[in-house]
C-alpha cells in the first residue's frame, strides 16, 4: 500500500469546483486525505458532499453536463489530467454507494466481477474468499456462494458491495452514506468493518449522521451551502480538521451550530 507513498496524503485537492450544466455546485474545495485514515465529509443535505466524493474517482464524468475545474492530486498525478484514464482511476479508487447495489448475479460472481474485467490471473477462489473475509461476510455466505446476491439482507448486501470493491485491490475506498439504508445493527457491523479496513485502505466517507462521523472518522470535513447566496446552493468547505477537534472545539461558528444540532 505504501510502496510509492512519498507523501502522507492520498488525495490533495487544489481549487476543485464542480459544475452541473454550467451551474456551479461546489466551489473551490481544498482538502487533504491522509493515508490509512478515515476522512468523513459531513454537512447539510445538498451541500455537495457526494459531489466532492464522486470527484475523487471521476464518477461525475458519467453525469451528462457535469464539468470539473481544479486539480485532485492522487499518487502525485492529477486525476483530471487529460492523459489520465478515468477507468484506471476508478479501478484504483473503489466506491461503495448509498443503497446496496449488488449485481443480480451470484455472490461469488459479484466479488469476482472487478478482477475479471481487469484481467486478474491469480486464483479467483482465493481472492473471493479473502475479500469476503475482509468484508466480514465470509462466515455468513460461505455455504451459499452460488446464490443470488439480491437474496441477502440489506446489511449483508452492503458488505457484499464492500467485498466487491475490495476485490479490485484499490488504494482508497470511497463510501457514500454506506449505512443510510440500513438498520442500526447492520450499521454497527459496517462501522466495525471500517475500523478493520483502515489498516489496509484509506477511506473517505460521506455521512449524514454526525454521530457516525464522530464514531468512525479520524478527520472530518464540514461542508455547507454558501450562506451569502443561498438560492444558488453552492457548496463549500467550512472547516477541516481532526474529528475530535471538529466535534469538541470547532473553530467556526457555523460548524459549532451544525454539530451541536442548531442548524441543518
Amino acid at each position: 500500500m505504501t510502496t510509492n507513498g512519498s507523501t502522507d496524503y492520498v488525495f490533495e485537492t487544489d481549487g476543485l469546483s464542480v459544475y452541473y450544466d454550467g451551474k456551479l455546485a461546489v466551489d473551490n474545495i481544498n482538502l487533504q486525505v491522509k493515508r490509512n485514515h478515515i476522512t468523513a465529509l459531513i454537512g447539510p443535505s445538498g451541500c455537495g458532499k457526494s459531489t466532492v466524493l464522486r470527484s475523487f474517482n471521476r464518477m461525475n464524468d458519467l453525469i451528462p453536463g457535469a464539468s470539473v475545474e481544479g486539480k485532485i492530486i492522487y499518487d502525485g498525478r492529477n486525476i483530471y489530467d487529460d492523459s489520465t484514464d478515468p477507468v484506471e482511476v476508478r479501478r484504483r479508487i473503489g466506491m461503495v454507494f448509498q443503497k446496496p447495489n449488488p449485481f443480480p448475479k451470484t455472490i461469488y460472481e459479484n466479488v469476482a466481477f472487478g478482477p475479471r474485467i481487469n484481467g486478474y490471473q491469480g486464483n479467483m477462489d482465493e481472492l473471493v474468499e479473502r475479500c469476503l473475509r475482509q468484508a466480514a461476510l465470509w462466515d455468513e455466505v460461505k455455504d451459499k456462494l452460488k446464490e443470488n446476491g439480491l437474496a441477502l439482507s440489506g446489511g449483508q448486501q452492503q458488505r457484499l458491495c464492500i467485498a466487491r470493491a475490495l476485490a479490485t485491490q484499490p488504494d482508497v475506498l470511497l463510501m457514500d452514506e454506506p449505512a443510510s439504508a440500513l438498520d442500526p445493527i447492520a450499521t454497527l457491523r459496517i462501522e466495525e468493518l471500517m475500523h478493520e479496513l483502515k489498516e489496509d485502505y484509506t477511506i473517505v466517507i460521506v455521512t449524514h449522521n454526525m454521530q457516525q462521523a464522530a464514531r468512525v472518522s479520524d478527520y472530518t470535513t464540514f461542508m455547507s451551502i454558501d450562506r451569502s447566496n443561498p438560492d444558488a446552493r453552492i457548496g463549500h468547505v467550512v472547516e477541516f480538521g481532526p474529528t475530535e477537534q471538529i466535534f469538541t472545539n470547532p473553530q467556526k461558528k457555523e460548524t459549532e451550530d451544525y454539530v451541536s444540532g442548531r442548524f441543518g
Binding site: 477507468v87 476508478r90 454507494f97 447495489n101 474485467i117
Partner: peptide, 11 residues
Amino acid sequence: SIREAAFGLGA
C-alpha cells in the same frame, strides 16, 4: 445504481 457500481469498479 448497477451502472455506477460497475463504473466504480473500474469497468
